[in-house]
Design a protein around this nucleic acid. Structure first.
Lengths: 347, 347
DNA sequence: CTGTTAGCGCATTCAA
DNA sequence: TTGAATGCGCTAACAG
C-alpha cells in the first residue's frame, strides 16, 4: 500500500492533458473546458491524488493558514473562542492552526515561531500572562497581521479585541441598585491586573453615579478561584455593616461566594445577590440563582477572525483597537424542567 | 517593513559560508565547527531569518505535524484531550494541527483532507457521530498512521483508544450495591450507540453478579442532556417500585436527575444516590454530592499521542486496539472551605 | 483554451 | 569540514 506519491504530472498523463491544465482545475479556474475539467477530476479520484500544500505554499510564498494561539485551552472560554474563529476562517477558505501556551511565555514564543515557519498569513493571539510588547515586536515587524484578543498589550502596535470590563461592571452594579441593593461588595481578584482595575473602576463609577460613595472597605481581593471566593465572602461578612450583594471578579469566585453563603445558611440569589464575570466556567454549568456578566466567546472569535481577514486582504492595515461589548445576562434558576431563561439586561 | 524574505543563501553570504553549512547548523548537526555555528546563528538573528517549513517539507516529503481532529471542541473533555496530546507531541518535536468537526461528517472529511494535503505524519481522531469505516478507508490506505480515540469504529483497521465503559459501569454499580442499594436505575442515553450498549451491559452484569436480576424496567433512555435527565428521573419515580439510586448515561443526565430530584424535595446524594459518567461537563464544576465515573482526558490524549508516535517511528505498525481504564471517582460535597476530597474507589 | 519553461527555499548527494 | 549541483511538487508566466 505504500504507493508512490501521485503528483499533478501523473494525473496530467492519466487525463491526457498538461500539468498546468491540471493546476488550473485544482484552483477552480474558469479558463478550462468543462469536459476537460471532468476528465481531470475523474483522474484525480481514480489515482487518489492529494494536493501538496507544501509545494504550493513554497511556490506562491504564502499559505491559507490562520494561526490562533490561546493561553489556556483547558478553559472552555478559549475553546469556544477558537471554535468561533474557525467558523469564519473556514468559510473564507483558510485553515486554522491552533496552539495552546498554557500561560507559558516560552511556549508562546515557540508556537509563534513555529507558525511563522509554517507561513501563516495572520495570527490571533490571546497572550500568556506576562507577555510584553517586545515579545511581539519581531512578529509585527515581519508584517504578518496580528490581532490580540481578551488581553491587550500596550505598545504592541497591533489590533486588539477585548471585553468592555468597565461597562460590564457598571451594568452589573446598576442592575443590583435597581433591585434595591445599597451595600454592594466587589469580591475576588488580584489588584495588580488591568482587568481587575477596569472592573473595579466600573463598580466604583456605578456606585458614585447612584450617590452611594466609594465603599472602599467592600472591595476585597482574593485569589480568582473558588477557594478565593469563599475567603472573600467570609471576610465581607465580618464587617459590621454587611453587604447584601456582591459583584465577583469572575465566576469561579462567585461559585466560592455561593459556597460560603450556604455555609452560613444563606441562599445565594434569595438572601444575597451574587453576580460574577463569566471568565472561567462554561455558562451551561453555572449554578442556579447566579447572575453572570458575560461576553460570548464564539462571537468574539468570529469578530477577531473577521478583523484579521480584513487586514490580510488589505495587505497592511493600520492597527485598530476594538473594544467588544460585554453583555450582562441574567440567568434564572434551573427549575424542575431544567429550563433556563436568559434575559439580556444590558448591551 | 515589507522586507524581502531572507533565505539560507542570505545568511550563508552574511556568515561567509555556504548554504549547506547553514542547513547543517539549522538541523543541529555536529559536523560543524563551533565557531562557524556561532557565526551562522549570529547571522540568523541579525537578519531575522525564519525557517521555511514548506520548502523543507517539500524537499523531504514529510512533515513534523501531527493532526488531531475532535468532534466537539466546545466540550472541555476534548479540549483537555487535545492539551494532553499536545504535551507529548510537542516534546517529541512535532507540532499539533487541531481541528474541530462539530459532529459534522462533511466537515470531518474536509479537515482530514486538509491535513493530508499539509502532509501530517499521523492523525488522532475522535470521530464525528455517524462516521463509518469507509470514511476512513482512503486515509488508512495512504499509510498514514491513525489512532482513534473515545469512539471506536468497527472495521476501520486502525488503532483505537477508548474508555472501558463496561468496567466503569460495573464499578459504579458495585459501589452502589456496597452502600446498600438494591433498586438501581440506569438513566438517559440513546440505545442505538455502542457506548450506551457497553455501559448498560456493565450495569446489568454487576446486578447479575450480585443476584439482583435484570431490572429491565429500570433502564430508561432519554436524550443525553440535562433536560433528558429530568424526564428520565420523572419516569423512574412513576414506577410503583421506585429505585433508590441511579447510574446515569453521562454527567449532563446526572445533573438533570438532580434537578428532578430537588423538584420532588429529594436531596441528591442523601435521599437518592446519583452517579454519572463524566462525559460532557468539566469535573471542576460538578455539583456537590454527585459521584462521577470519569476518565482523565489529558491522560488519554497523552496515551493516544504516544501510541501514534510509536507507529510513526515503526513505519507501519499493526493496529492495536487499546482499552483505556476508566476510574471511578467519588467526589465529596464541597463544604464551606470549598474543599473537595477525591477518593479513588476502583481502577 | 492548452503546453512549455523556469524557479520557489530547502536538504542532500558528491567532491574537494 | 565545506561548496556546487540537483530536484521535491507546484504555479506563473508566456507561447502556441
Amino acid at each position: 500500500m505504500a504507493k508512490e506519491r501521485v503528483t499533478v504530472i501523473d494525473i496530467a498523463r492519466a487525463a491526457g492533458v498538461s500539468k498546468s491544465t491540471v493546476s488550473l482545475v485544482l484552483q477552480g479556474s474558469s479558463l478550462v473546458n468543462e469536459a476537460t475539467r471532468a476528465k481531470v477530476n475523474a483522474a484525480i479520484r481514480e489515482l487518489g491524488y492529494v494536493y501538496n500544500r507544501s509545494a504550493a505554499n513554497l511556490r506562491q510564498s504564502k499559505s491559507k493558514i490562520i494561526g490562533i494561539v490561546v493561553n489556556d485551552l483547558t478553559n472552555s472560554f478559549f475553546a469556544e473562542l477558537a471554535v468561533g474563529v474557525d467558523a469564519v476562517v473556514q468559510s473564507a477558505g483558510f485553515v486554522q492552526f491552533l496552539a495552546n501556551t498554557g500561560e507559558k511565555i516560552e511556549r508562546q514564543r515557540e508556537v509563534i515561531a513555529s507558525m511563522r515557519e509554517h507561513g501563516v498569513s495572520g495570527l490571533i493571539i490571546s497572550p500568556a500572562r506576562g507577555t510584553e510588547a517586545s515579545d511581539l515586536t519581531p512578529l509585527v515587524e515581519s508584517g504578518i497581521p496580528v490581532v490580540l484578543v481578551v488581553r491587550d498589550i500596550a505598545g504592541a502596535g497591533v489590533s486588539s479585541l477585548t471585553s468592555d470590563n468597565h461597562a460590564g461592571a457598571v451594568a452589573a452594579v446598576r442592575h443590583l441598585i435597581e433591585r434595591g441593593h445599597r451595600r454592594i461588595a466587589f469580591l475576588g481578584g488580584f489588584a495588580d491586573t488591568a482587568v481587575f482595575e477596569s472592573r473595579v473602576r466600573g463598580y466604583r463609577d456605578a456606585l458614585l453615579e447612584a450617590g452611594l460613595g466609594p465603599q472602599s472597605e467592600l472591595v476585597i481581593g482574593s485569589a480568582p478561584s473558588r477557594a478565593g471566593g469563599v475567603t472573600a465572602i467570609e471576610q465581607a461578612m465580618m464587617l459590621k455593616e454587611r453587604p447584601t450583594a456582591a459583584l465577583c471578579f469572575n465566576d469561579a469566585v462567585a461559585f466560592g461566594v455561593c459556597d460560603g453563603l450556604r455555609a452560613r445558611r444563606l441562599e445565594p440569589g434569595a438572601d444575597f445577590a451574587v453576580i460574577g464575570f463569566d471568565d472561567v466556567i462554561e455558562a451551561k454549568t453555572a449554578v442556579p440563582a447566579l447572575t453572570t456578566v458575560s461576553v460570548d466567546p464564539q462571537g468574539m472569535g468570529e469578530r477577531a477572525a473577521e478583523l484579521l481577514l480584513k487586514q490580510i486582504k488589505a495587505g497592511r492595515a493600520e492597527p485598530e483597537a476594538i473594544v467588544s461589548s460585554v453583555r450582562l445576562v441574567v440567568r434564572q434558576s434551573c427549575g424542575a424542567a431544567a429550563e433556563r431563561r436568559m434575559k439580556e439586561v444590558s448591551s
